[in-house]
Design a protein around this nucleic acid. Structure first.
Lengths: 220, 220
DNA sequence: GGTAAAATACTAAAAATTTAGCATTTTTAG
DNA sequence: CTAAAAATGCTAAATTTTTAGTATTTTACC
């Protein structure tokens, strides 16, 4: 069901428009682990990852961090603050050296109204993300935990731009994201490992057979 | 967590723009049960419910229909065909006498490019829906089945415009939507009924204490 | 009104999942 | 290099959920 089509905002923009955005916003560098914003923060603006990666997640009351996703180059975040009038949904921090372009509300609105192509690119991104979220929710309901893990690995690999196929996910991240216990996730990962689809590391998982992993999404 | 903010597209449009849309599209009447489109259909266009309601769902291989949601007056659907280049995600059919405005790709694009306010309204709708979907997915992972049922009832009541608080949902619809067995859903519904929050009918559930039901979403 | 279909109600055994541990391995920091 | 911290690996009892039934109630239709 889940078709890996999610394009990044930058993929959808003509280079000319990207330059306009860069001129209208401010580019900042972040070091590994540096906080971009905390969850529930009420800052407003669209951000675009120019290089590096941003990790999103939630801090629980006991101080541990639960990863929700990773966005790599070209992807954007913050639309919710501009269009849904809501605070930041997740805590965001740099993953490695990272460069982020931020565009405030005023500048964003001006560009959005003046350039239909930009408006369209934003809408396309959000729409694709919506249907990806619906697919993910579908998976949560109707697929086995192995299948869910397979899709999560592929999704994080794609949005985070991990070409080397080693995905920086702890088993507890997967457990939290899937709403399962760490024990169940560990067992399922072991079954995937036995089938040779992945191999397990310390704080990371390596994709061994991408095609077969992808195929797990097709079975109904 | 889930804040019931989802506004309908028509709520977000100035009346003038709505009239432009009506002029650019075609309005059709549908009888109860009449099919608007089937799942996976590749028709393209934005549709707006002008009156009545549309039921969305999936037909399983054994011919039974699983309801996913109901959209009432003012809500739109079909953005996925325009922006994500995907076929229709669900089967759609009228629920009661229903009036739907449909705008084809050409007309939609012309209006979208010419009227930033329209573009903005579409993006707002999709963004709100995205964050609602993310919330729903969160609920699937981290909330009890009673809580999930509570939010589903409120969501369908809201988007479907059921002011009388009797929601036309079968227990099997809820079970499918939540990815649980019918037995588990029946038990959970019985617990909610014992607490006086709902009462159970044949093919429908009636909300008795909306405030307490809403409060179930707040507990973490 | 009577019958068939659809939906809900109920049950108990089987299966899956979580919980709450402790042990082991790997990494990080000093 | 060493100690502490973080993450994974493993286990068994307790709990939850599903499965696979049948029974009962409600509705639709002839």
């Amino acid at each position: 069901m889940p078709i890996p089509t999610h394009q990044s905002l930058v993929d959808l923009l003509p280079p000319k428009l990207l330059r306009l955005l860069e001129a209208a916003g401010t580019t900042r560098f972040y070091h590994d682990g540096q906080v971009l914003h905390t969850q529930r923060a009420d800052s407003v603006g669209l951000s675009i990852v120019l290089s590096g990666r941003v990790r999103f997640g939630l801090y629980t009351t006991d101080g541990s961090f639960n990863l929700s996703g990773i966005l790599g180059r070209g992807h954007c975040f913050g639309e919710v603050t501009l269009f849904a009038n809501r605070p930041r949904a997740y805590h965001a921090e740099a993953f490695g050296e990272t460069e982020v372009l931020s565009i405030g509300r005023q500048a964003f609105n001006a560009l959005y109204d003046a350039h239909p192509r930009f408006a369209r690119a934003v809408t396309v991104t959000v729409t694709q993300r919506l249907y990806e979220a619906l697919d993910t929710a579908d998976d949560l309901r109707h697929r086995s935990i192995e299948q869910q893990i397979a899709m999560m690995l592929l999704r994080v690999a794609r949005t985070g731009g991990f070409d080397d196929d080693e995905i920086p996910l702890r088993q507890s991240d997967i457990a939290f994201s899937l709403g399962k216990s760490r024990v169940s996730v560990g067992k399922a990962l072991d079954r995937l490992r036995q089938r040779g689809l992945i191999s397990l590391g310390y704080g990371s998982i390596t994709i061994r057979r991408r095609v077969e992993l992808l195929a797990m999404g097709g079975e109904d």
